[in-house]
Design a protein around this nucleic acid. Structure first.
Lengths: 209, 209
DNA sequence: GTTGCAAGACCGACCGTTCTTTCTGTTACC
DNA sequence: GGTAACAGAAAGAACGGTCGGTCTTGCAAC
């Protein structure tokens, strides 16, 4: 009881000054992200995060109302990171087709990272089977953005094509291959799966003219 | 202590007569399989399985030394089931190419089932990140069989092809698409993903001659 | 003197697991 | 045919451990 909830008095939030914004919060989030991705969300308890951050329970629960909020923050962080990387790759590419190749290369590079353990969103969705869970919503939002971005790129590529293939179909095919590559890479080996994905993307661009 | 192990005197084991083999064991396994697949392995506790089987703890732990053995039995059951279905489909098919189509159709049919929740093996692997875990071994064995079976089929298909494509590459591509379809179907919708997978398999067979 | 963080006791719930006890069939032996 | 033995299953108390989450206290900094 004691503390009457308080949320009005002092500095509301968002960096009341001080040295570095939210030092402990970022340390907590970074540690949790690493552990969640590497060992699974359900498999990592709050205590474990606290020990490795390091931080105390009180600090943790001041920054995150519950573990679920931490999970959400983790996934949103990954989403932000991927969007920035993809958008940078698109802007650098000289043509829509090269932009698609760049997106494919980004996936392939991801696969080859030694810490790679699969797609963070697919793994999270596997751990949260309930379709109404907020975690699932973040996953779905990310995937919706991804496939839309791809469809726009394919639309531009196919504008000059005589056969006029369906950009939506191509985008779906790309996502399907990406999901399969992400899921299979650390099970069957990066080399064979990464090569198959690269051939798949190249095939998608050449076969459809 | 008491009983000196005894295994010679009475009926040793393996069904000493009686009514039905291992009634409770099968009920336990069937219930656990349904729950593990539908809600996740880690998410389902022993107590839950006991309540729905129904059975008691003592009965459970006589048939399964630990929960992990139950998980292994669950996955081995799915493996047996899939192998039987695939081998039946292959034998029925009039040609290797049609056998591959049949395997693809089996995947697509699976996707369309209302209880479909993704690939049991991929979900299990996602829940057990440790590469040395016995669960991972079962998953890897299943996948190794699957890709080998596909490569043999593609080898037969390509024997008459002038371009002589690589059967291993084709098999890897098939698995990649299957993994992607299985993972994406219950996230993005069965219709679009199922259609993309069907086009992918057909493309794989026609593009490579 | 308000705020952020450290440190840790504490909570109820549930985890997988082991145990004791009782009841039932079936089997083996005399 | 009678009886003792035993495997299988039911029922449930209890184990130590960990889960996510709350609370109190003390200290340091702006």
């Amino acid at each position: 009881m004691a503390a009457p909830t308080r949320s009005a008095p002092g500095g509301p939030n968002g960096g009341p000054g001080g040295h570095g914004r939210s030092e402990a919060r970022e340390r907590l989030l970074a540690t949790a992200s690493k552990l969640f991705y590497g060992e699974g969300i359900r498999a990592v308890g709050v205590e474990r995060i606290l020990a490795e951050a390091p931080a105390t329970r009180a600090t943790f629960y001041r920054h995150f109302p519950s573990k679920e909020d931490l999970v959400l923050a983790y996934l949103r962080g990954v989403d932000t990171q991927i969007r920035a990387a993809v958008e940078a790759a698109i802007e650098t590419a000289p043509s829509p087709a090269d932009a698609l190749r760049a997106v494919g290369t980004a996936v392939a590079d991801d696969l080859a990272r030694p810490e790679f353990r699969g797609c963070a969103f697919l793994k999270a969705a596997a751990e949260y089977p309930d379709p109404d869970d907020p975690v699932r919503k973040v996953v779905l939002d990310h995937r919706a953005w991804y496939v839309t971005m791809l469809a726009e790129l394919f639309t531009q590529v196919f504008e000059t094509s005589p056969r006029r293939p369906d950009p939506q179909h191509a985008a779906r095919h790309f996502v399907m291959m990406r999901d399969g590559a992400m899921t299979g890479a650390h099970l069957d080996g990066v080399d064979s799966v990464g090569a198959a994905f690269h051939r798949g993307v190249e095939g998608l661009l050449t076969v459809l003219h």
